[in-house]
């Protein structure tokens, strides 16, 4: 019970940040001229959409056991392209770059496209928050030991050992506060880890001296081999 309460508190803390931002942006509308106001309005929309997405992901976690998320052959490149298209603007706004590199053989994976989208999205968003300014984050899709590995590499503070150990175990039990990576409760990683587990995918992280790579490994669809 105590751990549940602490998870809720950590998640609430992370969700409070976008609400504070939206409030400040709304207040700053009074300080702006017409042109600048439209920029602020688009920021309000961006921040709200990200917050809504996170709340949606939390809602999905509650419904995973209901079997609402169908597993089917999914084009992993299609999902990654969508995420990059969605986040590219946000990366640029924050003086960072997000690139994508494919070396896999265009295989389909067994996944739920909605959940896979959230996993990749959360990894990328995590990379944006924790990479240094003017650095490149790279989303890679590659074949790896009979699976497809989707990984995101960032260049920033190294991942704390306790979180890395949880990732190594392949499962984050609850959101954990990441002191080295402020502004985050690790909620995104918790969401990614929970969705991956549901999809029988494996998540993991590699610590580098200058950052971290997070990855998810997905089973290849047999349907894909018919086409491959």
């Amino acid at each position: 019970m105590e751990s549940e309460v602490s998870s809720i508190l950590i998640a609430a803390h992370e969700l409070k940040a976008p609400m504070s931002l939206i409030r400040q942006l709304a207040l700053s509308l009074d300080l702006e001229n017409q042109d600048a106001n439209s920029h602020v309005r688009s920021q309000i929309i961006d921040v709200s959409e990200r917050a809504i997405k996170q709340v949606n992901d939390l809602t999905k976690i509650a419904h995973l056991e209901d079997g609402l998320f169908k597993m089917e052959p999914v084009s992993v490149r299609g999902v990654c392209d969508d995420v990059v298209a969605e986040l590219k603007h946000l990366f640029r706004f924050n003086n960072r770059e997000l690139n994508i590199r494919y070396t896999n053989q265009s295989r389909l994976v067994i996944a739920n496209s909605d959940l896979l989208h959230s996993v990749v999205y959360n990894f990328c968003l995590n990379a944006m928050h924790y990479s240094d300014q003017e650095t490149l984050s790279e989303l890679t899709v590659q074949d790896h030991n009979g699976r497809v590995r989707v990984g995101v590499r960032d260049f920033g503070p190294a991942l704390p050992m306790d979180v890395w150990r949880e990732m190594k175990r392949g499962w984050i039990e609850k959101p954990v506060s990441i002191a080295m990576r402020p502004g985050s409760s690790g909620l995104g990683l918790y969401i990614a880890s929970t969705f991956s587990r549901y999809m029988n995918a494996e998540v993991g992280a590699v610590r580098h001296r200058d950052g971290t790579s997070f990855f998810v490994e997905l089973p290849i669809s047999k349907q894909a081999s018919l086409f491959g």
Binding site: A17, L21, Q24, L25, L27, L31, G183
Partner: peptide
């Protein structure tokens, strides 16, 4: 470290 928040503060100090 939040660019949007930083910009909001800067606007108040325009």
């Amino acid at each position: 470290d939040d660019k949007i928040m930083a910009e909001c503060i800067a606007k108040a100090c325009k």
